[in-house]
């Protein structure tokens, strides 16, 4: 497939096209189909947000906020509600300015998540991005469980042109991390990216293994800034909350990478997680090429979600 260079917004819009079609056609008919703001009206909004995987709780919160504002500002027109709704979600999804500090200093980025969400791909893409910014990157291939995971990552490392430290299948992942830290130090790398094996968050022994990896990084590389990204599949439903919650118990999560956002999934779970756990989405994956990992922009994201066409700026 010939993928032209698109700006972030264009890419996101392309990825979110289907998203918008479903969510927005619903929204538009709501905002135009009702003549007054009543319970039925709110119920319809609720349905649409739930269809977007925002989840029951986040949806209820959003509606409550919306109701309060409508009352406060004495809004009578359903159409005026739209901007309010968009604004409140935007506000909620805003990423702090300091969110990407790890790109600026000596840092270790630990990438974790359940099976099949796209951790290895994310590490590969991230390596490419950092490398193109002129950083010296080392990758640790600590997924020693899945067959050929190391080979997969090596392919990405080669594409990005960075060095990878790996181990045999079945090797202790913590020892791979240990070796990678030594390598990163001796090569004076700016960023050490650690890929890990996919693990379901309810598997105790695998989560213990993650704790061990975490401890080793703290102990052996204490001078490095810590960034811990949990990768969530954008097509995942409410279970993503449980994932974020339980990975958060074994490692201090500093951000979320939301992958597979180029399909028809609405990725609304990001709003739910932000709302319930206050973990910001930092990156969004919208395709399979190395350029398809983008910084998350709340404005663009919500605009694209609700098909707001003004202030379209490429990045």
């Amino acid at each position: 497939m010939s993928e032209e260079k698109k700006g972030f917004f264009g890419r996101l819009v392309a990825g979110l096209t289907k998203t918008r079609e479903t969510i927005v056609s619903g929204i538009d008919s709501i905002f135009s189909g009702f003549s007054s703001i009543d319970e039925d009206f709110y119920e319809e909004i609720e349905e649409i947000l739930i269809m977007g995987d925002l989840g029951v709780n986040a949806t209820e919160q959003i509606i409550e906020t919306l109701k309060a504002k409508v009352k406060e500002k004495k809004i009578k027109e359903p159409s005026d509600c739209k901007q309010l709704l968009i604004d409140s979600i935007k506000e909620q999804m805003q990423v702090e300015e300091a969110a990407y500090r790890f790109e600026e200093e000596l840092s270790v980025v630990l990438v974790i998540g359940v099976n099949g969400v796209g951790k290895t791909t994310t590490v590969g893409k991230l390596a490419g991005k950092l490398k193109s910014q002129g950083k010296k990157v080392v990758i640790a291939a600590a997924d020693t469980f899945r067959a050929a995971a190391g080979e997969q990552l090596l392919e990405w490392a080669n594409r990005a042109g960075v060095e990878m430290i790996g181990g045999q299948e079945g090797a202790d992942p913590a020892s791979v991390i240990y070796d990678a830290i030594s390598a990163a130090k001796s090569r004076k790398a700016d960023v050490l990216l650690c890929d890990t094996a996919g693990r379901l968050h309810n598997k105790k022994n695998l989560m213990e293994e993650l704790k061990k990896i975490n401890r080793i990084i703290d102990k052996e590389f204490s001078q490095a800034y810590r960034e811990t990204l949990v990768v969530l599949d954008g097509t995942t439903g409410q279970n993503a909350l449980s994932q974020a919650r339980q990975f958060g118990e074994v490692a201090d999560l500093t951000g979320i990478v939301l992958t597979k956002m180029d399909g028809t999934a609405k990725g609304g779970i990001a709003v739910a997680i932000q709302s319930e756990l206050s973990i910001p989405v930092k990156y969004i994956g919208v395709g399979e090429t190395i350029d398809d990992l983008q910084k998350f922009d709340a404005n663009d994201y919500v605009n694209a979600l609700f098909d707001v066409k003004e202030d379209r700026e490429g990045a």
Binding site: K18, T235, G237, T264, A265
Partner: peptide, 12 residues
């Protein structure tokens, strides 16, 4: 199909 799939499962 991943059993954790959300609302999008129907589209897929």
């Amino acid at each position: 199909v991943d059993s954790m799939t959300g609302q999008d499962a129907v589209n897929v």
